[in-house]
């Protein structure tokens, strides 16, 4: 069973959300991937307005329309527009089919503005996915690091959080979130560097490591290869490839009556 915690609609080369997700599913089938988590629309913006958040979430809702048996949606929100983001969470998660939140680079996640979003997500049992990077040349002004996420996690120990990209520089990323037991790491969107999975499993435990791809910007193949090629036990590989994500999503899926 393979569940991918990190895919997008933008970058597929297709024109509509429906076509984009169909393209993703065709390639996912080739690679044996059962379920995709999809978030954000097309085009992207670093600091989306409330209207842009709604537009992109609408695209994901359209994409999910015929693929509820293969894909889950996370609602795109921003710490720069808390009230609008709370409305989007209600529209797309509480009253809609989505099962998690996605925060990108509009503002850093250790800001107080993130608290209301995380608390609302927690109340709905939704998973919170935060993009993180530690870039050698410096992050974008609103781009979070794994250290920022660890700070946020310490304020919300009952929330379920995902550290996107393991922070890019994964040796640092796993260290930064090591003590935050409510944070899992997403392996996606980082080159297929040998050792990444072994390090994450060693430092965090296999239960906190999630396969993700960041497709279509990334290849399912290169990102899966990290896990398939890792020197870990088969039991740990199954956890990383899909069992962990299913466990993390189970509370909200059960609350929504979704079998998976």
């Amino acid at each position: 069973m393979i569940w991918d915690v990190h895919t997008h609609l933008a970058g597929s080369g297709e024109k509509t959300p429906e076509e984009s997700i169909a393209r993703l599913i065709v390639a996912a089938d080739r690679m044996g991937i059962d379920r995709l988590v999809v978030f954000m629309g097309d085009p992207w913006s670093y600091d989306p307005s409330p209207a842009d958040l709604t537009r992109q979430n609408d695209q994901v809702l359209k994409a999910l329309d015929h693929w509820h048996h293969r894909a889950f949606g996370f609602v795109y929100v921003s710490v720069n527009h808390v009230e609008a983001s709370l409305r989007e969470i209600d529209r797309c998660v509480r009253d809609g089919p989505m099962v998690g939140l996605k925060l990108w680079v509009a503002g850093r996640c250790d800001s107080p503005e993130a608290d209301a979003l995380v608390l609302h997500a927690q109340g709905l049992k939704a998973l919170v996915f935060q993009h993180t990077w530690i870039k050698a040349q410096g992050n974008l002004p609103g781009e979070s690091t794994p250290m920022d996420l660890a700070t946020l996690a310490s304020r919300h120990p009952e929330a379920s959080l995902v550290c996107g990209h393991v922070g890019g520089q994964w040796e640092l990323g796993v260290r930064a979130v090591r003590s935050a037991s409510n944070v899992a790491v997403d392996l996606g969107g980082v080159d297929a560097t040998a050792g990444i999975v072994e390090a994450a499993v060693r430092e965090l435990g296999a239960e906190r490591v999630l396969y993700g791809s960041d497709a279509p910007g990334r290849s399912f193949a290169t990102q899966l290869a990290k896990v398939h090629g890792a020197d870990i036990s088969e039991a740990d590989r199954r956890l990383v490839l899909g069992e962990n994500l299913r466990r993390l999503l189970r509370p909200i899926l059960q609350a929504k009556g979704i079998e998976a």
């Binding site: 390639a27 080739r30 690679m31 080159d191 297929a192 560097t193 040998a194 290849s219 399912f220 193949a221 290169t222 899966l224 290869a225 990290k226 398939h228 090629g229 890792a230």
Partner: peptide
């Protein structure tokens, strides 16, 4: 680009691209 990359990455790309 092995062993810096896991060598399976390039090989699995062949499968993905059919």
């Amino acid at each position: 680009h092995a062993p810096f990359y896991v060598p399976e990455a390039a090989h699995l790309q062949l499968k993905e691209s059919a």
